[in-house]
């Protein structure tokens, strides 16, 4: 069953179409990879889906209901949450407080939120950093904090915007394992990533964007063998 349906979504900035007539859907429990060259409109699409920019045209349906006109906070409450390509820790608050603020989307009790937050910190392996200031974490741990905070809102669909960007291979591997572990729990994910090896490993399906348009969609194998994708993005070495 499709948990997210994107139909004919366009987003214009002035005369520029950052997304043009993009349609695809994400199956429940699967990982959808979203790739494409810089400026292809991947992050713009995330912003449309999560309510930061309303789509200029088209409709996005999540869990059976239209998201048109909904603000990001409502969309989070419905069960869809995103992380940020450029991490956005609440710098002067502790790591635990950051994740608690995510958890407070589902409870009014600070104690309950603290419990939920500790669980998620353990999931991403940051439990020993709980009392540190979020602003003082190194980049690898900030990325994990983004994920823990998003998970604490108890989403049905997690949108990860380049969580491996700027990480060394060992850290990337930890994130890959984390994404796969989250999938094991049945959570649907949509992942923007530039690291082709990683995205091929984790994705069930992949959508390729180019100049705002959908260039191709399919399983990782189908996508790498697609001549358009090779020409526009991958280059010959991947083919």
């Amino acid at each position: 069953m499709a948990i997210l349906e994107i139909s004919h979504v366009s987003r214009f900035f002035g005369g520029l179409a950052a997304n043009a007539d993009v349609s695809f859907s994400v199956e429940e429990g699967r990982i959808m990879g979203l790739i494409g060259p810089n400026g292809a409109g991947k992050t713009t699409l995330f912003n449309c889906i999560t309510g930061y920019y309303p789509p200029s045209r088209g409709e996005i349906r999540f869990d059976g209901r239209s998201l048109n006109g909904l603000q990001p906070d409502r969309i989070c409450k419905l069960g869809m949450v995103r992380t940020w390509q450029k991490v956005r820790p609440l710098a002067k608050l502790s790591v635990l407080d950051n994740v608690m603020i995510g958890a407070l989307a589902r409870t009014h009790s600070l104690n309950k939120a603290r419990e939920l937050a500790m669980v998620q910190l353990t999931v991403v392996g940051l439990e020993r950093r709980a009392d540190f200031l979020a602003g003082g974490l190194p980049i690898g741990e900030r990325k994990k904090l983004e994920v823990a905070r998003a998970l604490a809102t108890q989403p049905k669909l997690l949108l990860l915007d380049e969580v491996m960007g700027g990480l060394n291979p060992a850290e990337s591997e930890e994130i890959i394992q984390l994404i796969l572990a989250i999938k094991q729990q049945g959570l649907t994910q949509m992942v923007i990533e530039h690291d082709m090896k990683a995205i091929m490993r984790i994705s069930d399906r992949i959508v390729v964007l180019n100049s705002g348009e959908k260039l191709a969609e399919g399983t990782p194998e189908e996508v790498v063998s697609n001549q358009d994708v090779v020409d526009a993005y991958l280059g010959e070495s991947h083919a």
């Binding site: 989070c76 940020w84 956005r88 603020i101 905070r149």
Partner: peptide
């Protein structure tokens, strides 16, 4: 405090 630190991030967290 979340709003103080980062409005967009706060918005995304519900």
């Amino acid at each position: 405090q979340a709003i103080r630190e980062d409005q967009d991030a706060a918005h995304s967290l519900g």
